[in-house]
Design a protein around this nucleic acid. Structure first.
Lengths: 207, 207
DNA sequence: CGGCTCTTTGATAGCCTTCAAGCCCAGTGG
DNA sequence: CCACTGGGCTTGAAGGCTATCAAAGAGCCG
């Protein structure tokens, strides 16, 4: 697919959940005035709508932001897993908990960080998450988002989004060309963002 | 306790999770400049830190905003539940999923709603959630938050928080006296907030 | 070469923060 | 009993941040 495509629509009741094998997707809500807000970005290895397994009704939509390879997990099968495989169940649960932790970090960013810091934080987060699934190359990664779409992540106007990106560029902290982001100064970026990856729960430990 | 008290500190590794029987608590993060952002409000019936069961390390703090009666659920016991009681496990998982749904709604409110609409939305959410646990009286409920604390929920300055509250008051949509909120015009409030309770998953159905 | 979307820049207006000060009220100590 | 004190609430004013309107440049495809 060449254009962003809807994966799941708001208000529906999916009978399976979708695991992203490759590509970028996002959850979003649209307001009456047409304003859109992305509530999460889902990368390779993420379950986009695992929560629908128990929440039943989708209260938001999911859209593919790049061509996506996905795997469907039937809710009947998931239920069977919860009946028979406690350890696997805990890992699925954990996946949704990390989701929640990311949401909380986004709330903090939207409420109390400057827009520059917010963007820096998002870049840190995406870099670390992509690194885990081996989708980075050195200090750069591919991000197939237009500035308008990114504005819908940060809750900004397109014009201001462009200016905030310009700020990080002029600081020589990142370069951003052709949907590819290169981190020029990781330490400085982390400092700007006050980034602490604890919330991503990447430590390997018994669950 | 008469003053807000910390229940769980950031960076710790709780060995039990806390269920609120009565009272109000909140999750929060603090930034280097001292700014604080609440990431959720937890009411009677909520598990404040159930996510710690699998996430292990607290990436944020939890504070009591009123005297709280709580119940501790040992993580060992929780693990036993996941091994032996699949249905109960799904309900615990569901609790954290609703948490996530509320987080997403907050993100939308912070990113794309006007501050007045954001506050209206929060009031709608709290009213509905409190109604479920029978903590409302007619169209009013008790909310033991100072305006400064509320500002840390919406991500506003105290001064502007006060003005936003003033707006809703002057519109005769709510009255707000002595930490008690009365909804004077539910329809108008819902309209201002574009409130749709779907995300709270209150429908009773097999999980 | 158009026609399109995306990016970039300028200008203006409005929202929100900050600084400052006054008010109200409950608790405290004289 | 009453002045004092401290916290929370309210209001005014100034300035900065961000949205909106407008327009021009850049890259892609028919």
């Amino acid at each position: 697919m060449s254009r962003p495509a809807r994966i799941v629509s708001e208000g529906t009741r999916p009978v399976y959940s979708t695991l992203i094998i490759d590509g970028l997707a996002a959850r979003y809500k649209v307001l009456e005035d047409g304003g859109r807000q992305f509530t999460s970005l889902q990368l390779a290895g993420d379950f986009v709508d695992l929560h629908a397994f128990l929440l039943k009704t989708m209260d938001h939509g999911i859209i593919a932001l790049s061509p996506c390879h996905v795997l469907a997990a039937d809710h009947g099968k998931l239920k069977m897993i919860t009946e028979q495989a406690p350890h696997l169940t805990r890992l699925l649960w954990l996946d949704t908990l990390v989701d929640g932790a990311i949401h909380r970090e986004w709330i903090v960013a939207m409420g109390r960080r400057s827009k520059t810091s917010h963007l820096a934080h998002l870049i840190c987060e995406l870099f670390v998450r992509l690194q885990v699934v081996k989708k980075t190359r050195d200090m750069s990664f591919h991000l197939p988002l237009s500035q308008a779409q990114l504005a819908d992540v940060l809750g900004l106007s397109v014009v201001h989004m462009n200016r905030v990106i310009g700020t990080l560029r002029r600081m020589n902290v990142i370069s951003w060309t052709n949907h590819s982001i290169e981190i020029l100064d990781w330490q400085r970026l982390v400092g700007l963002a006050e980034f602490d990856p604890t919330y991503l729960s990447m430590a390997r430990e018994p669950r």
